[in-house]
Design a protein around this nucleic acid. Structure first.
Lengths: 110, 110
DNA sequence: ATATTATATTCCTATATAGGAATATGTCAA
DNA sequence: TTGACATATTCCTATATAGGAATATAATAT
């Protein structure tokens, strides 16, 4: 068996470095495929294919404008990742009180 | 070409759901392999193999005690994931001021 | 020395990619 | 309708798994 498909799980989709770049490149603004091609310097099919994966997993939304397709980030899909990793931040961060409580809560929550 | 190895990149290592479980199971306390086997209900080789990956990528530390091997989380290795995803939290969170500033900063930083 | 306990490793297989190259599809302009 | 532009898709291949089964290694006890 191989890994769970990138097209179903945000964790997996984001495990690919180029897709993280793509997500970050979009940031706030809606961009066309060509704008992303220029911005990132990849070839067009690469950009389209990675956008396809991100779209399937729901990390980006697409809007058609003439012959262009505008993509924008759907940041809420990143929420599960943030929520999974955030509790651990307490561990390496200096600013915490009562580590034991934090960790107990963390374990209870999942 | 396939994906970048799970043994080199925390994002990739954590893309596997069972490894996330494992990390969470360890949480605060150091646990032996057998304790993890019982806790998670997997077979022993599965636990050992996933621990092996986590160890290679630096997400856990191992300590030998007699015939046992005690594993504990090295949470700092999760920092890059937190730092990558955290800025996006501003987007879906209600409690933010001046989204434009946040996003501009986000883009500048990488 | 031998059995037992604890854990790691090896072998095998099905499968999911990521990237390159080439091509197809869709849309607009003249 | 023909060409140019914008984007998606298909085909191909090398490779990295994850899981199961069986086995190996290591350490302790008797």
């Amino acid at each position: 068996m191989a890994r769970t498909p990138t097209t179903h799980d945000p964790f997996n989709a984001v495990a690919e470095p180029r897709r993280r770049q793509l997500i970050q490149a979009m940031g706030e603004e809606e961009l066309s495929v060509n704008e992303l091609v220029e911005l990132l310097g990849w070839n067009q099919p690469s950009v389209s294919k990675h956008l396809g994966v991100l779209k399937q997993v729901g990390l980006v939304k697409e809007r058609r404008v003439g012959r262009q397709r505008m993509y924008r980030l759907n940041a809420e899909r990143l929420k599960p990742i943030f929520e999974w990793v955030a509790p651990f931040e307490k561990i390496w961060s200096e600013r915490f009180d009562r580590l034991d409580v934090v960790l107990e809560k963390m374990k209870k929550e999942q």
